[in-house]
Simulated scan of single mutants.
Amino acid sequence: MVLLGTIVNGACIAAGSFLGKLLHRIPERMKATVMYAIGLSVIVLGLQMGLKSNNFLIVIVSLVFGAVIGEALAIEDKLNLLGNWLERKVGSEEKGSIAEGFITATLVFVIGAMAILGALDSGIRGNNNILFTKSIIDGFTALILTTTLGFGVVFSAIPVILYEGIIALCATQINHFVPKELMNSFITEMTATGGIMIFAIGLNIAGITKIRVANFLPGIAVVTAIVTILYFVHF
Rank of each mutant, 00 (worst) to 15 (best):
M1Y: 08
M1W: 06
L4G: 00
G5F: 00
T6G: 03
T6E: 01
F18P: 02
L19R: 02
L19I: 08
L19P: 07
I26S: 13
P27M: 11
P27D: 12
E28N: 06
R29I: 07
R29Y: 05
M30N: 01
M30F: 12
V34G: 04
A37P: 01
G39M: 08
V42Y: 01
L45Y: 15
L47Q: 03
K52S: 08
N55H: 13
F56D: 06
L57Y: 14
I60A: 12
S62K: 09
V64W: 07
F65R: 02
G66R: 12
G66F: 12
A67R: 01
V68P: 00
L73I: 10
L73N: 00
A74W: 11
K78F: 04
K78Q: 13
L82E: 11
G91S: 07
S92Y: 01
S92L: 02
G96R: 06
S97Y: 04
I98F: 04
E100R: 15
T104Q: 03
T104E: 01
G112H: 02
G112R: 04
M114Y: 12
M114E: 11
L117C: 03
R125N: 14
G126T: 02
I130C: 08
F132W: 11
T133F: 11
S135C: 05
S135N: 02
I137C: 00
I137Y: 15
G139V: 05
G139F: 01
L143H: 08
T146N: 10
L149K: 15
G150W: 05
G150T: 01
F151T: 04
F151V: 02
V153Y: 02
V154E: 02
A157Q: 04
A157L: 14
I158T: 07
P159T: 07
P159A: 11
I161G: 05
L162K: 05
L162Q: 02
E164K: 00
L169Q: 03
A171W: 05
A171K: 01
T172D: 00
Q173E: 14
N175V: 07
S185M: 14
T188N: 14
E189S: 08
T191L: 10
T193M: 13
G195C: 06
L203E: 10
N204M: 06
N204A: 08
A206H: 00
A206W: 09
G207F: 03
G207P: 11
I208V: 14
I208K: 06
I211A: 10
A214F: 06
N215H: 09
F216K: 08
L217T: 15
P218V: 10
I220P: 01
A221W: 13
V222E: 12
V223H: 04
T224Q: 06
I226D: 06
V227M: 14
V227W: 11
V227E: 15
L230P: 00
L230D: 09
L230R: 10
F232R: 07
V233G: 00
F235A: 15
